[in-house]
């Protein structure tokens, strides 16, 4: 049984349809790579899933239970199980890296501070930042901030992790460290929905590729096959324009 099922999801922003009937299943352990041109609705889908943009219609179920986005309790319960990392990191500017990781488990979930602190330090060292844990966001590079943001999301022990173009805002030389962290998570069996423009990374790390265009899914498949022989015209045109990095 799939962990997360999305059926015929519609969403609109500022009077414009941005999702026009998206259906997608994410099973436990899946790493779904979402690709497609800018404005195709990939990021919007993630925002709808975490309840930042209410859907117009459609069904989202988590382990078979329907999520009603109009009900606060449903959204809260959902957010206890999903975590998202944003393109712009969005770290709390008034807190150190360590505080950013600790604040939600301690203050929102009420877990004991010492226990959370140990976990947080462990998470920060896993993303390679144990030496910078007392730095404020404006003292960290973009790549470092993004790794803190990933640690912050993991501290919530999510069942599914959503990553929204987490390397798009980074200088090219900082991308590698962030991608390495995500590779590590995939290898550890984390269920993830990854929106990214890093095609070679998606090809390597995803168990499934989903391509979106104009607010709907145009094709999905296994990465090796998808990138070798895309089935649809849109996907062929898109894949044809990819310039593969040598990695």
């Amino acid at each position: 049984m799939p962990d997360l099922a999305i059926a015929d999801l519609h969403a609109a922003y500022a009077g414009r349809t941005v999702l026009g009937g998206v259906s997608l299943n994410v099973a436990s352990g899946d790493v779904v790579g979402m690709i497609g041109p800018s404005g195709s609705g990939k990021s919007t889908l993630l925002r709808v899933l975490v309840g930042l943009l209410p859907p117009v219609s459609g069904l989202v179920t988590l382990d078979g239970a329907t999520v009603d986005y109009r009900r606060k309790a449903d959204v809260r319960a959902l957010r206890d199980r999903l975590a998202i990392v944003f393109q712009q990191y969005n770290l709390f500017q008034n807190m150190t890296a360590l505080e950013n990781v600790m604040v939600a488990p301690v203050r929102i979930r009420g877990r004991p501070r010492t226990e959370v602190r140990a976990e947080a330090i462990d998470l920060l060292s896993r993303v390679g930042l144990s030496e910078r844990m007392n730095a404020y966001p404006d003292q960290l590079s973009g790549g470092q901030q993004q790794r803190v943001a990933i640690a912050r999301a993991l501290a919530l022990k999510p069942e599914i992790l959503l990553l929204d173009e987490v390397t798009s805002a980074l200088d090219p030389e900082l991308v590698g460290d962030v991608l390495d962290v995500i590779r590590g998570l995939a290898a550890a069996g984390m269920t993830m929905l990854i929106v990214s423009h890093e095609m070679s990374f998606i090809r390597d790390v995803a168990s499934r590729v989903v391509m979106m265009a104009d607010g709907s899914i145009v094709e999905e498949g296994r990465p090796a096959e998808f990138f070798r022989e895309p089935q649809t015209e849109r996907a062929r045109a898109f894949v044809g324009r990819i310039r593969w990095h040598r990695d």
Partner: peptide, 25 residues
């Protein structure tokens, strides 16, 4: 606004967001 979003997805309430994130900034 992204500070509000970050807090919202981690289940901060309105008052918690104000007290822990917005007012300190």
């Amino acid at each position: 606004p992204n500070q509000w979003h970050s807090a919202a997805v981690a289940n901060f309430s309105f008052m918690q967001t104000l007290r822990l994130v917005v007012i300190p900034q």
